[in-house]
Design a protein around this nucleic acid. Structure first.
Lengths: 235, 235
DNA sequence: GCAAAAGTGTTTCAAATACACCCATGG
DNA sequence: CCATGGGTGTATTTGAAACACTTTTGC
């Protein structure tokens, strides 16, 4: 339990600063791996502390915007991306997160579709890295990404967020690639197919994906609306 | 998206206030229902806004304490209770949560054991109510409790938090009563028993609960350590 | 025809469920 | 001995998993 004393540093007496950050996941074709892999955009810090280290996109919360709006905004500002899924991850508020000032960060996580991810701009201060190969990040951001990954892996198994990574139509093999990239293991194509066909909110179209080297697979469409779970707390 | 204009109320230009609140669950013997039911403590508001309405225990975040410490502290201060389980629920930050000032509330949820819950003091300004029979609460606190209940019901099914409601030894029927109270439905005693016996972290003692009207049931002990999941984000 | 992915069928295995039944105790 | 909850046994069902097999395309 914290002890209040007269010679606590002055910093500790000011109200904590409130900031919003976002972990943004996208699936990108990866030549090295077999299929696509998980990537996320980072921004270079241009000020102390942790100057020149890479960090999650984020910024202060404006007085007149809702938490999720703030996440969507700094996501848009730093990467130009529109997320297909956006959910609160956690509020991080440890005393030693920043060496200069107490900061409470409310962190969101987002998924973007491949067409969005393709036109994401990389600049001197914005870089995309593989989720399993970040370097050392600023603050506790390595820890935060770790947790976001854990949440993503869990949620992909019991909800329908996988489709947030895909376009309006897709093959069942593409869905399987999403699961394999997120979970990091191979899945049996036959059984995976059956499970998807058993869910009501994925329906076949009359079209087939042409141009492959082999038998053209049928295209499907997701009809389940936004992936947000019913337990989510809006407002 | 919020629009910035010159005649936005002054309130909207000040930094949002940061507060911590806690939803505290305890199981209490309930004469009306068959077994125990879920209860939680509320505090009466003594100031505007929502004066005289009931609200979740909470207060501002001190500059020198971690988020979870603040939750534990105002839990201790208002109810005198020591939680056996404490986890962050969600950060609520809508623009219209409070009519007088923008408040961002980081809400925790807690479970307390029956011996603790028994010596919880009720005063003029602290009252225990059934979780399914709160009246109208201050702010968005009805909504928050709803969400906490949803989380509790989910988590009781896939983790071991049920034991946070129980003492150091217990009968299997008591564990079942916890599940039934939380989930709100009856469970088959035979199958429930088998499932518990199959988990490694619950071991039988040599003692039996005497004094019942029938065959004395064996007492068990939970050996699984704190119920906090591995995906929890510490620090 | 061959390679390779799309797609189907079938068997096996594990877990949840339903439910009949016996056991031990207080009254 | 009877009512009641404690505790065991067992058949049924469901779904995940493993894997053999057929189909359709490009080359």
């Amino acid at each position: 339990m914290p002890v209040y004393s007269a010679n606590v540093s002055e910093r500790a007496q000011q109200p904590p600063e409130l900031a919003i950050s976002t972990v943004i996941f996208a699936l990108r074709p990866d030549p090295e791996a077999g299929g696509p892999t998980l990537w996320l955009p980072l921004v270079r810090r241009t000020r102390q502390p942790f100057r020149d280290l890479w960090a999650l996109p984020g910024g202060p919360l404006r007085p007149d915007e809702a938490l999720q709006d703030a996440a969507a905004r700094n996501l848009q500002e730093t990467t130009g991306l529109q997320p297909s899924y956006l959910e609160q991850l956690y509020a991080f508020g440890g005393l030693d997160r920043s060496p200069v000032q107490r900061v409470v960060s409310i962190v969101y996580w987002a998924l973007v579709k491949p067409d969005e991810a393709a036109l994401a701009r990389e600049t001197e201060n914005v870089r995309w890295v593989r989720a399993d190969d970040l370097g050392q990040l600023a603050f506790d951001h390595n820890h935060i990404v770790e947790y976001a990954l854990w949440r993503l892996r869990n949620k992909v198994e019991y909800s329908s967020i996988a489709y947030a990574f895909l376009g309006s139509t897709f093959t069942l093999a593409q869905v399987r690639e999403v699961y394999e990239a997120v979970l990091g293991r191979q899945l049996d194509p036959a059984n995976f197919r059956r499970q998807l066909r058993a869910t009501p909110d994925i329906e076949p179209t009359d079209e087939y994906l042409q141009g492959g080297r082999h038998r053209p697979p049928r295209l499907y469409r997701y009809t389940g609306g936004a992936a947000q779970l019913s337990g989510s707390p809006p407002a």
